[in-house]
Design a protein around this nucleic acid. Structure first.
Ligand SMILES: [Mn+2]
Ligand SMILES: [Mn+2]
Ligand SMILES: [Zn+2]
Ligand SMILES: [Zn+2]
Lengths: 136, 136
DNA sequence: ATTCTTCTTTAGAATAATTATAAAAAACTC
DNA sequence: GAGTTTTTTATAATTATTCTAAAGAAGAAT
C-alpha cells in the first residue's frame, strides 16, 4: 500500500476528509523512518519547506488535534511555552535536552519497569511517563 | 525563629528586598504543613483571600520566578496551559489527576529507584521525574 | 454531470498566560 | 534627611492557541 493510501486511511479513521492540505501534513508527520518530536510551529515550518502549497496554521492545529484525539499522535508533558507532540504513540519515556529544547526517546528497557506502590481511591493509572532532563 | 524571619531570609537569599507584598506571598506559599502545588493564578487568588492588601499579578510572577530560580520552588512538567509549581523542592514524583487538574506527591519509595541505562554524549542527567496520569 | 448538502480552509479576530515597560513608591545607604 | 537603588503596579506587548464566519472543496443524490 502506498503511503498516500495510509494517510487517507488515518484521516478517515480520524473523521477527516482527505484534503490536499491534510495529506501534506501527513507527509511531513508520518513519512519518516524515525520518531518525530515536534511543536505545531516546527510542523508548520516544515510544511512550508517541503511543499509548494500553503497550509494555514489553523488547519495544522485542527489536524494535529484530530490525530491526537484519535491516538495517532501523543502529547509529551514538559515545561515549555509550546506543546510538544510525538509520532511515537507507544508507551515510552524521554530525555529532554533543556538547552537545545530537544526530546529524545528512551526505550522502556532503558528505564526498566516502574511499579507504582501507591493508589488513589476511585482513580486508576492511565499512563506512567519518565522525563529525564539533560544538562551539559 | 518566627516564620516572618524565615521569609525574610528566603527573600534575601533570592536577592529580593523583604517588602510587605513579598511577605504576603511567602505567607501563602510557605506557611503550611503540606506541600503545595499551584499555578500563578491559584496563588494570586489565595493571596486575595488571605490578605487585605492587594498584590499585583506582576509581583506574583516576579517573586515566584525569583524563588524558582533560587530553588525554593520547583516547576512541574505537565501538559497544561498554565505552569504548575511546587513548594516541595526535593526530588520526587507525581500523580496528575487529569480530570480535576490536580497534582499529588509520590514519595520516592512509592516509585522505587529508576536506573537510566542510556546516556547522551556530552550531556549529564539533571533530574528524573515520573508523572503518573490518573483517570476515573 | 448537475445539484445539494456537509465539511473544510483560511484570514483574521479573540482569548489567555506570561512578560515587558516605565513612572510612582518604598527600601536601603550614608 | 538626602541620595541611590529596588520595587510595585497599571498597562501595554507578546505569544501560543482557539474561535469565527465566509468562501471553497468534497461527497451524496439525482
Ligand atoms: Mn518520543
Ligand atoms: Mn510535588
Ligand atoms: Zn490535542
Ligand atoms: Zn521560573
Amino acid at each position: 500500500m502506498t503511503s498516500k493510501q495510509e494517510f487517507i486511511k488515518k484521516l478517515r479513521n480520524s473523521n477527516l476528509r482527505p484534503t490536499k492540505q491534510r495529506i501534506n501534513i501527513c507527509e511531513v508527520l508520518f513519512n519518516r523512518d524515525k520518531t518525530f518530536h515536534f511543536t505545531i510551529n516546527d510542523l508548520f515550518n516544515l510544511i512550508k519547506d517541503k511543499t509548494e502549497e500553503k497550509v494555514s496554521l489553523a488547519t495544522v492545529y485542527n489536524t494535529v488535534h484530530a490525530f491526537h484525539k484519535k491516538g495517532y499522535l501523543k502529547e509529551i508533558p514538559i515545561n515549555s511555552n509550546q506543546t510538544y507532540f510525538d509520532t511515537n504513540v507507544t508507551d515510552h519515556h524521554h530525555f529532554f535536552d533543556v538547552k537545545e529544547e530537544r526530546l529524545i526517546d528512551l526505550k522502556n528497557e532503558d528505564v526498566g519497569p516502574i511499579e507504582i506502590q501507591k493508589s488513589i481511591p476511585g482513580k486508576k493509572i492511565k499512563s506512567v511517563e519518565v522525563l529525564v532532563k539533560l544538562e551539559d
